[in-house]
């Protein structure tokens, strides 16, 4: 009895070993039985896996978190520092891109006008304690800057250099109430004076009694004797509101500057003007409105 039991066990062992080897052989010979069965099992298991993922995901890395607790804390601190640095770098990069764009545009304006310029960055803005609208730029006498030079931005007039040190200069902005610039209405010979009013709007007083101001008129700097303090042809502003009436002697208008003085970071100081007057060539041209052409489809003519 015992031996028959032992024989039966041996037979069973041989049978099972042969079955295992047979399955292995089938798989190694490329029979797709295994992959089909495994795919079927995967279909059964995957809903359970999804369920457990939702329920037990907080516990997945429990042991590694416990083991790496002190390292995790250190790593989190390091990563936070890196994030702060990257954020600051990103802000700096965006600022640099903006500055580069402004520099390109101001050099482009200077090139079109034929001005010789020295580019500069705004490093400070005037304090309210002095009640002066000023900027400080990072170029001075070492770069050839002197008093009463015109300062321009990518879109037009900014101000005039008022004081100079070896490495910096103070620019009086056109928004300052004491600032005045002689202007000409583009496309005409009418001349006037634009004055700063301490804010973002400016006052135009037309000196020509026969001249006419219209809303939308562009104003360019008329230029000064010896091109100091103003070189001719620099865009100054655009008329937004006509203020004068029939009884007034001079014609007045509200003007909006072409330059946003709050946002400039790069300017150019005109060290030498063009040989000729650029006239109205530096005024930004309005974008052409797209013209839509509609071709009517021919309607079928009625049969006679």
């Amino acid at each position: 009895m015992a031996s028959s039991g032992g024989n039966r066990s041996r037979l069973l062992l041989v049978l099972l070993l042969v079955s295992s080897l047979f399955l292995i052989t089938l798989d190694l010979r490329g029979v797709n039985l295994a992959s089909s069965i495994r795919n079927g099992v995967s279909t059964v298991i995957s809903p359970a896996e999804n369920l457990f993922t939702k329920r037990f995901s907080p516990f997945e890395n429990f042991t590694s978190d416990v083991r790496n607790f002190s390292q995790s804390k250190k790593k989190i601190t390091e990563l936070n520092k890196q994030i702060d640095l990257l954020k600051a770098k990103q802000i700096l990069d965006e600022d640099m891109v903006n500055q580069l764009s402004q520099l390109k545009n101001v050099l482009d304006l200077a090139g079109r006008g034929g001005y010789k310029v020295v580019a500069a960055r705004v490093i400070n803005r005037g304090s309210t304690a002095t009640f002066k609208e000023t900027l400080t730029i990072d170029v001075g006498s070492r770069s050839g800057i002197t008093k009463n030079m015109t300062v321009i931005s990518e879109s037009g007039l900014v101000g005039v250099v008022k004081s100079v040190t070896s490495n910096s200069s103070i620019v009086l902005l056109m928004s300052d109430p004491t600032f005045k610039v002689g202007v000409r209405i583009a496309g005409t010979q009418s001349i006037g004076v634009v004055s700063g009013q301490g804010g973002s709007s400016y006052l135009l007083q037309l000196l020509d009694a026969t001249g006419e101001i219209k809303v939308g008129d562009a104003l360019v700097a008329r230029g000064s004797s010896g091109d100091r303090p103003f070189v001719p042809g620099v865009p100054v502003g655009v008329v937004v509101t006509v203020l004068s009436n029939a009884s007034s002697i001079t014609q007045n208008a509200d003007v909006e500057s072409t330059t946003n003085l709050e946002k400039i970071t790069v300017v150019a100081v005109v060290t030498a003007a063009a040989k000729g007057d650029p006239r109205d060539s530096l005024i930004p041209k309005p974008r052409p409105t797209p013209t839509v052409y509609v071709t009517p489809t021919p309607s079928p003519s009625p049969r006679e």
């Binding site: 062992l13 070993l17 079955s19 295992s20 399955l23 039985l33 295994a34 069965i37």
Partner: peptide
């Protein structure tokens, strides 16, 4: 291969 664990556990 399919059957390897069966062989091992047998």
């Amino acid at each position: 291969p399919f059957g390897q664990w069966a062989l091992v556990m047998t």
